[in-house]
Write a protein that binds this DNA or RNA. Sequence first.
DNA 1: TGTGATCGGGAAAGCGCATTCCCACTGCAA
DNA 2: TTGCAGTGGGAATGCGCTTTCCCGATCACA
Lengths: 365, 365
Amino acid sequence: MAASTLTEVARLAGVSPATASRVLNGSARKPGPGVSERVRQAAEALGYIPNAQAQALAKSSSGLVGLIVHDIADPYFSAIARGVQEVAREQHKMVLLATTGGTPADEKEAVAAFAARRADAIVIAGSRSRRPEDDKGNAELAAELDRYCRNGGHVGVVGQAIVGAGALDGYHLVEVPNEELAAELAGNLAAGHSGEFVIIGGPEGLITSDDRIRGFQSGLAAAGRPAAEVLRASFNRAGGYQAGLELARRIREARASGASQEGKRPGLCIFAANDVMAIGAAAALRSEGFRIPRDALIAGFDDIETLRDFRPGLSTVRLPLEEIGRLATLSTVGTETADRGDGHDDGGRTVTGQVTLRRSTEWAP
Amino acid sequence: MAASTLTEVARLAGVSPATASRVLNGSARKPGPGVSERVRQAAEALGYIPNAQAQALAKSSSGLVGLIVHDIADPYFSAIARGVQEVAREQHKMVLLATTGGTPADEKEAVAAFAARRADAIVIAGSRSRRPEDDKGNAELAAELDRYCRNGGHVGVVGQAIVGAGALDGYHLVEVPNEELAAELAGNLAAGHSGEFVIIGGPEGLITSDDRIRGFQSGLAAAGRPAAEVLRASFNRAGGYQAGLELARRIREARASGASQEGKRPGLCIFAANDVMAIGAAAALRSEGFRIPRDALIAGFDDIETLRDFRPGLSTVRLPLEEIGRLATLSTVGTETADRGDGHDDGGRTVTGQVTLRRSTEWAP
DNA sequence: TGTGATCGGGAAAGCGCATTCCCACTGCAA
DNA sequence: TTGCAGTGGGAATGCGCTTTCCCGATCACA
C-alpha cells in the first residue's frame, strides 16, 4: 500500500509540504489561487490520496465510528446498521463493523479494537445480557467502555444501558420501551382472544427478551388474565422453530385428551419475543400440520421489513429500527460538536414503537 | 480521544520506548522477563491501548478490509457481509463498511476512502452497471481501483468483473454463474409448466439482472419455448411489487377476454431476477386477489435465508452468499501472505448455486 | 514616506509508534 | 589476560501529515 505522499506532491508543485497540506484539505488558511492550482494539478498528476492514518495521527480524530452488533445478517441488526451508516455518511465518517454473537467478552474485544483505532464514537446494539456466565465479560466490557468514555469517546447504546457501566457522560442511550410495548400488545391480544397464552422467549438473562416477556405478562395481568407460561430457546429463528415443535406437540396432546374441539374453541396464542422467533415457530407449527391462525395465534416483535410480506401477516410491534440506528449515531456525534452547549444533553433519546395487529392473531371460528 | 501513550508506559516502567514497544507487541526481539513484567504492569496500570493509527503509519499495514455493498439492510448483502466479517475476524482484521446504493460514482468515493485508510483489501459486492448514465462513474471507479491495485492493494470482486478495469493482478473475482443457473432454472420450470413465461428484471444494464434474464431466456429456448417478455423495474422489493401489479392487471384482462378459463389452464409463470423482487410481485398479486401458485407461478433467485419460511415456498436458485463473502475476502488476504507462491493464483474462485424448486411453481390444476 | 497590520509562504516540531543502529556488558575460548 | 561473538537495552530516525511559529513582502493609513 505505498502511494505518493504529500511531500512528493509539494515537491512537484514547487511548494512546501505545509502549503500543499493547506490546499489539499480544508485548512483555515487558503493559499493563493496560483499556488493552489499548481498543487492541485500536482496532486492529480501523482494520483495523490491523503493517508488518513497519518491525518488521524496528526489531528487526533479518526473519522471512524464503530458499530457493534450480534450478527450483521440478522435483519434486526442490518436495519439498524443502515441507519448508522446513513448518519455516518452524512457526517463524512466511516463505519467500522464488529459482530460478536452477543458475547460480552467479544464485545469488549471490539471496543478495545475501536479504541485502538481511536474511533470517534461507538454504537453498540443488541440485547445486553444478565446471565451469570456473562458477569465477567460484562464487567470487562463496562470497564473498557468506561475507559473509552473517559478518554473522550462517545458511545451510543441501543436498547438498555450497559450492565455495570459508570454514570459517565459519554454514554448516550437510545431507549426502546420494550416492556411498555409488549404490555400494550398483550392488552390488544387479550381483548380479542379468550384462550390461553404462551410465551416463547430467549434465554433467561437476555434483557431485551426479559423486558418483553415481563411487559407481556403485566399486560395480561392488567387484562385480568393469568400469567403465561414461558418457553426458553435461543433468540433466533432456530430457537423459535424448536419451541414451535414443542408447542405443536402440546397442542396435539391437548386435543387428543380434550376430545375433538378442533376449530370450536380458540387455540393457543403464542407471543414470541422477536419476529424471527415467531417465524420459526410458525414454520414449525406448519410443518406439524397446524395452520395459523386457525390452530394457533402468533405474534412477534420488531416488525422486520423482510418479514412483512409473510402470510398470514404477522402481528407484531413495529420498531423504527433504522431510526434507532440513526439516533444512536447522532447522539454520539451531535454532542461531539455541540459539546455541552445549551444546558446539557439528556444523553440520549427515546423512540417509540407501534402495536401492529395482522392476520396471524385473528381468530375466525 | 486522548489516551496514555507508549512513552508514558515506558517512563512508568523505567525503560525506553523502544523496549516498551518490544514487549507490548509481537516483536522479534524479546526483552528479559523482569523488564517485560514491569512494562506489562505499567501498561495495565495506565490502561494503555496501542494507537492503531500510529502503528499502521509506522509499519504501513492497517489491518483493515473495506466492504462495499449497495445496501447493508438488503438480506443479499448482509449475508455476504457476514461471510466477509467472519474471515476478517479470523485474520484479525476489522471491516470498514460503505454503502453506495449501487452508484458507481459513490463506489469510487468509497474506494478512495478505503485507499486513504490504507485498507489491506477491498471487497466489492453488488451488481456492476452497464447503463450509459453510469459510464463516467464506472470509468472513475475502475481508475480508482486500478490505482489501488497498483499501490499493492487487493480487491475481491463479487459476481462480475469491474467494467473497464485493467487486467492487474490484485483483482480477485468470485464468479457467480448467474446465467447458467438461470438457464437451468428455466429448464426445470419449462418441464413442469406448459403456459406462458414472463420475466421481471431490474433496470437494463444492471449486469447481474441482465445475466439472469439472458440465462433464463436461453434456458427457455433450449426447452423449445418462445422468449419471455421482460418487465423492467427497480431491483428490489418495491420494483417487484410494481411489476406484480402490472401483471395482475394483465391476468385480469386476459381472463376477461379469454372467457372463464380460471383454474383450467396453467397461468403465467413469473421469473423475478431476485428473491426480494419475487416476494414483492407475489405480494402485489395477492393484494389483487390472486393466489400463488393457483393463479400464477413465481420463482426468484438467491434463496435469501429470511425468505425461506415464506409460503408458498419460493422456487429459486440457492446461492451460498455467506460463502461468497468468505471467498471474496479470503482471495484477497490469501494472496497477501502466499503472494505468488506456487505457480500463480488463479485470481479468484467460482462458486456454484443450486436450483431449488418449491411450491410457488407447482401448478395443481 | 514611514509604520504597523495583514497576508502568503516556509521551517520545524510533533502526533505515537516501529525499527535500525549502536553501545555496554556478559560469557566463552584462545 | 585478550579477543570475539552474543545479548539486552537505549538513542535516534522516520512513517505522512497538521499546525504552530516565524519571516519577508505587501497593503492601508497617517
